[in-house]
Computed example of a mutant assay.
Amino acid sequence: MRAKDATSNGPIALDRRAIDNLRFIRETMERAVAFTAVSGWGLILTGVVACVAGVLAARTDDRRAWLEVWLGAAAIGFSVSALAMWRKARRSQTSLLSKPGRKLMINFSPPISAAVLLTAALVRSEQFDLLPAMWMLLYGAGVTTGGAFSVRPVPLMGVCFMLMGAFALFGGSAWRDGLMVASFGGLHLVFGFLIARKYGG
């Protein structure tokens, strides 16, 4: 009975099965492939920007000026990292809008959006001392969840950010600039070097 059905359906059934199998294989491969366009050099440059910002921020006693320094550093670091990622993807012929790339962005965006909103709320209530811990925790959360679709050092870097953020949360304002430099500066430099060395730039 089964042989008769296969014969009666003929090439059409085989074509459909082959197309379904190819689609399944393609989707499985897309899910399995890590997003490798995260640029180690971009992270290194971001780390350098953060180190410079830390020096400048430590020299001011004005909280608004301190905030402007770090927000400016964040904007520059994000731009540099995004450009470096785009260049790496182009060089390796990888689409930033591939499934792993889209998943990385989708998982990275909510914690960063929350960080933006909480920054505005904390500044409005003049709770500046909570900003560094909140930035480290939410940036770390975004890197950890988004990095699940990237190479191994990326989510590990996110966990390190969260650990430093937890320490900053209870460490008091005396550790503020030091932890900002150690995390946004040091962690980006260390993990950027690892990614650049092991994953093609």
Results as ranks from 00 to 15, higher is better:
Met1His: 04
Ala3Asn: 10
Lys4Asp: 01
Asp5Gln: 15
Thr7Asn: 00
Ile12Asn: 01
Arg16Asn: 12
Ala18Cys: 02
Ile19Phe: 06
Asn21His: 14
Glu30Tyr: 03
Arg31Lys: 12
Ala32His: 13
Ala34Arg: 06
Ala34Gln: 13
Phe35Glu: 05
Val38Pro: 07
Val38Asn: 07
Leu43Pro: 11
Ile44Pro: 04
Gly47Ala: 00
Gly47Ile: 08
Val48Ala: 07
Val48Gly: 02
Val49Pro: 02
Val52Glu: 07
Ala53Gly: 09
Gly54Arg: 14
Leu56Val: 15
Ala57Asp: 05
Arg59Glu: 10
Arg59Ser: 11
Thr60Tyr: 06
Asp62Trp: 07
Arg63Glu: 11
Arg64Trp: 02
Arg64Ala: 03
Ala65His: 03
Trp66Lys: 10
Gly72Ser: 06
Ser79Gln: 01
Ser81Met: 09
Ser81Gly: 13
Ala82Cys: 07
Lys88Asp: 02
Arg91Thr: 14
Leu97Trp: 06
Lys103Gln: 12
Lys103Leu: 04
Asn107Thr: 00
Ser113Asp: 08
Ala114Ser: 00
Ala115Gly: 12
Ala121Tyr: 09
Ala133Gly: 09
Leu137Met: 14
Gly142Leu: 05
Val154Leu: 10
Met162Pro: 05
Gly165Pro: 11
Ala166Arg: 02
Ala168Thr: 14
Trp175Lys: 08
Leu179His: 04
Ser183Tyr: 10
Gly185Leu: 11
His188Cys: 10
His188Met: 05
Leu189Thr: 14
Val190Gln: 04
Val190Ser: 05
Val190Glu: 02
Phe191Asp: 02
Ile195Gln: 03
Ile195Phe: 03
Ala196Arg: 10
